[in-house]
Amino acid sequence: MSDVTPAAAGTLSGVRDVLTAVDVTVDYRGHPPVRAVDGVSVSIAPGEVVALVGESGCGKSSFARAVVGIEKRSGGTVHLDGADVPFLGLRRRGVQSTGIQMVFQDPNSSLNPRRRVADQINDGIRTAVARGDASSSAADWLERVGLAADAGRRYPHEFSGGQKQRIAIARALAARPHMLVADEPISALDASTQTAVAALMRSLSLEAGAGMLFISHDLSVVRRIADRTLVMYQGRIVESGHTETVWQNPIHPYTQALLAAIPIPDGAGRLPLAPLEEHRAAWTQVIPEAIDRELAA
């Protein structure tokens, strides 16, 4: 397929990218209108986990929704396996576009409360079969996400938040997506469940050979699961590259502030300082060297 846009932001691996988003822009109408996402590009290879971090309201969720097509893009393109990902309008989504799936933040609203869990996972399996992929069983998926195989007979209200999120992950992965977009999938969970669910998402998407865009504001989890990290501030990517490089040696003042804001559990009881208003002006600056940082030698 030669219609893949080559101008996409560089990737670390040589494998052909599964997702290519170029200059994605999202505007919200209003007075005044808000540009939530301002020309964000990212390419994700199969089996690669890319994290998008930033403070609340920086546009990371809007970007995630625009990539999947839930939010209307006012500019830019998103291609999945070389084919355009259209806006999810009123029409039925085409077979090819079902290769991109999403996991939402709130586990309580991501499952239909009046349908059995297995039925909902079967919806995902049916999607995979419709695309010509192999079939699978709901019980199998439940076991893979760490639940009992017979949990499928139950209804969502019988599960905890973390378990519901596992079921939502099972449903998304049962569709055998090439690309999984997770919009703060762990922020509604308690601390001990967060790491487990995040690690599960990484291992399952790697196993499936799917790319994953993981939106989070929890930097310590991101460090553990992401190959690459994108730092977003006010709708723009201010720093990006190998997770370890960005983590060890942040260039952009916003990334530095973000990492400095992580509390250190050293028993000293020190809380990170709140960012000052004058710092915010520096955070909007564009530093070209901070983009696409390679792994340090």
Partner: peptide, 14 residues
């Protein structure tokens, strides 16, 4: 709601 959107992403017709 998220579960309806999830269904639509899985290719549900209206």
């Amino acid at each position: 709601s998220n579960y309806v959107v999830s269904g639509r992403l899985l290719g549900f017709s209206p």
